[in-house]
């Protein structure tokens, strides 16, 4: 199962890359598993910190999700990981 992950703004700067592909094995993965896998790959506990502090937005296939929902990621999904907005 392959997932595309893209990072935005401050999170992209902190993690040091724009995007990555994750191979998550054969079964659908829960969101928190994907987040932990990103941090494991980058050898930094960044995304989980944002997640625990509720300081991020996540969209799956261009739809914003409630991060408290029990989301299952599937093969070919695209995840956007974004900090909280600061426009205007």
């Amino acid at each position: 199962m392959r997932i595309y992950v893209k990072f935005y703004a401050k999170i992209r700067d902190e993690i040091g890359i724009d995007h990555m592909f994750l191979d998550m094995g054969n079964n659908p993965s829960r969101l928190i598993e994907v987040i932990r896998e990103i941090d494991r790959r980058m050898n930094k506990k960044i995304i989980e910190e944002y997640y625990v502090r509720r300081r991020l937005l996540i969209s799956i296939n261009d739809t914003l999700i409630d991060i408290d929902d029990d989301i299952l990621l599937r093969d070919g999904d695209k995840i956007d990981i974004m900090p909280l907005p600061s426009g205007g």
């Binding site: 703004a9 401050k10 300081r55 914003l64 909280l84 907005p85 600061s86 426009g87």
Partner: peptide, 19 residues
């Protein structure tokens, strides 16, 4: 609510502005 972000660049450096 709108996913827009700003980076402030000053004469002494920059910072991402957060909510």
């Amino acid at each position: 609510e709108v996913p827009i972000w700003k980076k402030e660049v000053t004469e002494h450096g920059y910072r991402w502005i957060e909510e």
